[in-house]
């Protein structure tokens, strides 16, 4: 992108300190090296993302459906698909459900993961004992485990409510009336992804320097104080990375919700991914679906941009 920035380490090394040499056409293996290294990955990413994006973009500007897809009798209709989407209460409902789902699932999951990481921070023995258990959900195949959850959660027949009943707790309709299904899919997402956040946060905690904490302890700071004024600020970059990765991941959720609720009750758990699926593979309106896809890429892109800016500020500080 910016040629001048391309070789800072080389420049620092005091050799070949003319960054513009590349621009002047002095090609050499050494100079090309970084580009050669980046090329294959970039090509693959472009192949698999540019084509789908353009495919969706093209479809979104046409009145293409299953009925005219192969005959080619579809027309260019400008932004009408987008206008229809803007008027669609279902689309905005799905957008709202997506944001609610992502925020709830990332937020709640983070609290649990952070709590666990803090609890196990200073107890390596216990950590070694417990870590294998905490790893389990990470390995579970979402499409299969969603069915297992389904069987476990059915209100009159499932083992979860049976066990809750044994210890005298109320048995909620996990997959029944709103808002329970949304709570359920969030909880399952949390279940599946707490381990990832836990391990990253724990790794972050283990590399925190000891000195500030020792100094604070000598000064008589309490647990809360050293957490509030030392752990949190020191860990901030790690927390940010965890949240960003997890948020991005949550936006791609599909399998579990599709299997468990299919969007029910009503469209209460219909996040954008399911909405797009309905438009494309149940409604067969590929033009509309294209518009949804483009809108999704824009929405997630926008959120991604915000997250990434946060991160890039950290990055800049580190440089």
């Amino acid at each position: 992108m910016n040629v001048r920035e391309a070789h800072p380490p080389v420049a620092e090394a005091g050799r070949a300190a003319r960054p513009r040499a590349w621009a002047r056409g002095r090609w050499s293996g050494e100079r090309l090296f970084p580009y050669v290294m980046v090329a294959p990955a970039t090509l693959i990413l472009l192949l698999f993302t540019i084509y789908p994006t353009l495919f969706n973009l093209n479809a979104s500007l046409r009145d293409v459906t299953v009925y005219n897809f192969t005959s080619g009798a579809h027309r260019f209709i400008g932004t009408r698909n987008y206008e229809a989407l803007g008027r669609s209460a279902e689309f905005w409902g799905a957008t709202g459900a997506t944001l609610l789902y992502v925020v709830a699932s990332v937020g709640f999951g983070f609290l649990i993961a952070f709590g666990l990481a803090l609890a196990l921070q200073h107890t390596p023995g216990l950590r070694a004992l417990v870590s294998p258990f905490l790893l389990v959900p990470l390995m579970a195949t979402p499409a299969v485990v969603a069915l297992a959850w389904n069987q476990m959660l059915v209100s009159e027949l499932g083992v979860v409510n049976y066990l809750l009943g044994l210890v005298g707790l109320p048995a909620p309709p996990w997959l029944g009336t709103a808002p329970w299904p949304l709570v359920t899919v969030v909880l399952i997402d949390v279940w599946q992804h707490v381990p990832f956040m836990f391990f990253v946060l724990l790794a972050g905690l283990t590399v925190l320097p000891d000195e500030p904490f020792e100094a604070a302890a000598i000064d008589g700071a309490g647990t809360w104080d050293s957490f509030r004024y030392l752990t949190l600020p020191l860990l901030q970059p790690v927390i940010l990375v965890t949240l960003i990765f997890r948020t991005m991941n949550a936006f791609t959720s599909f399998d579990v919700i599709y299997v468990l609720t299919g969007g029910a009750p009503g469209t209460g758990t219909e996040i954008l991914n399911l909405f797009l699926y309905r438009k494309a593979f149940k409604g067969f309106e590929f033009g509309q679906a294209g518009a949804v896809a483009v809108a999704m890429v824009l929405i997630t892109g926008l959120i991604g941009l915000v997250l990434i800016r946060l991160m890039s500020r950290e990055d800049a500080e580190r440089d």
Partner: peptide, 13 residues
């Protein structure tokens, strides 16, 4: 599939 199903589900909800 794309209209009646969610509508029935809305009723049930």
């Amino acid at each position: 599939d794309s209209k009646l199903l969610p509508a029935l589900s809305q009723v049930m909800a």
